[in-house]
Each structure stands twice: as C-alpha cells, then as structure tokens.
Write a protein that binds this DNA or RNA. Structure first.
Ligand SMILES: [Mn+2]
Ligand SMILES: [Mn+2]
Ligand SMILES: [Zn+2]
Ligand SMILES: [Zn+2]
Lengths: 139, 139
DNA sequence: TATCTAGTTTATAATAATTCTAAACTAGAA
DNA sequence: TTCTAGTTTAGAATTATTATAAACTAGATA
C-alpha cells in the first residue's frame, strides 16, 4: 500500500484525466511528483529507479504506457535533445534547458533567465505551439 | 561519371578532411551541396532521393556512414527535434528552426531573426558549445 | 603502368529504444 | 457480487541505427 500526503490529490488528478488510479500509476505519480525540484529522466532511468528496491515490480511496458499517458495528460513534458532517446520533465511550465553533452543531463533554465527581444513570425497559417531554447554545454 | 562545376571543390573539401573522394561521397556532396537553399533531411529521405532514379544505388550503410563522416567533418549539422529520428542540416552556420509538428519539416530561422537579450551563465566549469532555439509550430 | 594496401562500400546481422499484441487482471459502476 | 472497459504484463514486432566482415577501390609507390 502506498502512503502519501498527496495520494488523494493524485487520485483526483488521474480521475480528472480519465485515467484510473491504479497501484502502478499512483506509485509512479508518487515517485515523480513527490519532490521539490524538477526531475528530468528517460524511460530507462525511471524504470531502474522505480524498480530498484525489492518491491513489486512495474513492467517496462507499463512504465512506457504511463509516461505516454502522463505526457498526453499534461503532467510531463517530453524533451527531445538526445539522439535515439526521449527525455521527460516534471516541470511542465514553459522553460529552457542546459544539456550537458558529457553527462547527458538536463538542467532547467527558468523562463526569466532568458530574454528573447525578437522572435520571428510563424509561417502563414501556422501557430507557435512552443518555443524552447537548448544550450548545449561541455567541460 | 559525375559532372559538376563544383566537383573539384568537393574533391578538395573531402581531401582536406582526410576523406577519399569516392564516387559515392561525391554523388552525395553534389546532391546535398549543389543547391541555393538550406536542405534539411533525415537519412531515410536522403536515401530515397539519392537512390530514386535508375542510377547505381548507394547502399543505406554508406548513406549512414557518409552522413556521419560529413557531420564530424563539419559539413552537416545534426538537429535533434523529432522523436527517434535524427535530422541533418546543410546550413552549418549558427541558426534556429521552426519545426512543423504536422509535416515534420524544419525551416531555418536566421540568427538575426531572433535576438536574445539575456542568456544564463553556464554551470561552473562548463562552456557553451551551442545555443539553439526551436519553435514548434502547428496549424 | 602494375602492384599494393589502407580506406571504403556493401549486405547483412546485431542492437537499442520503442510500440504492438493479446491474454490475464482489476477498478469501480451497477 | 457481478460485469466490463480499462489496465497491466510478457513477449513479439518494428524502427532507426550501429557493427561486422568480406569484397572493392583510390591513389601512393615501384
Ligand atoms: Mn528509437
Ligand atoms: Mn533508434
Ligand atoms: Zn526542465
Ligand atoms: Zn537549418
């Protein structure tokens, strides 16, 4: 049984997105969202961390399904910055990233740390869905 | 035999990067660089276009090898913007992109069309290798 | 020009991330 | 308690990419 102050909140959140609050989803919610700071991860790392301890394992397929469902529901943001591998971000506010080519880790850049004083108009008939700055860094 | 005003230039270019000017590489050079405008492509699309006509086929492995070699040599830039698939860009100058989520196509944004009046300092000991803005657009 | 060899191309196999499939399970409405 | 649509799961399938190793070739040298 999962115990968390936020359990009820997660149950509601899931229900409001037409997602049944299953053991697996709640465990993943707790793991992802019971934290102060932004969490950036790949499915591989999430799978390892979720299934680290002796606890009942959540299958890899469910990890994939859940991450996709949470992304569609808007609980997670997908970050495409690395070859052949998707990253996900618990910070769903509009913001930017450093991507360290060595450690392959993302770090948040708050929106107010970058100022765009000029932005181009999108092509005719197209709307801006999202604008992201990625700053690749290295030693 | 490939005939092109730029052939000699490509031969030199390749030699200067310690790449032998083979038939295949020259054909790919001609296809990629004998054009006015930036060309954005995936290995899949390049393979289709290069091998469209009845001409002698270049193997997919060679397309992959060549794109990688050209990227390392600095003739191409890799753009990571789409899930599970790399894009490449014949425009190697520092610039930005629109990415159309519908058509999955990239469009250049010249550096001077975006003005960054505030950019964060990279973490200690790290240097900025590259800064790119991606604007995702939709109908 | 003929010979030689490191670099290259190629078909194919292997890998890695992800998606699909279908059977077993379960949340929760009735 | 029963029922069913939604969910989980193991494993197969798919897709993009990378590795392997044999055949080929650019071009240096004899
Ligand atoms: Mn993939
Ligand atoms: Mn891949
Ligand atoms: Zn973030
Ligand atoms: Zn471009």
């Amino acid at each position: 049984m999962i115990i968390s102050d936020n359990l009820k909140m997660y149950v509601q959140k899931l229900r409001s997105s037409n997602l049944r609050p299953t053991k697996q989803r709640l465990k993943i919610c707790k793991f992802l969202f019971d934290r102060e700071k932004t969490f950036h991860f790949t499915v591989e790392t999430l799978n390892k961390k979720i299934n680290k301890n002796g606890a009942t394992k959540i299958s890899l397929a469910t990890i994939y399904n859940t991450v996709e469902a949470f992304t569609i529901a808007g609980y997670l943001k997908e970050i495409l910055t690395s070859k052949n591998k998707s990253y996900y971000d618990t910070n769903i506010k509009s913001h930017h990233h450093f991507y360290d080519e060595g450690s392959k880790e993302l770090t948040d850049i708050h929106s107010n740390q970058i100022k765009l004083s000029k932005v181009p108009v999108p092509p005719k008939g197209k709307k801006i869905k999202n604008l992201e700055v990625i700053i690749r860094i290295q030693k």
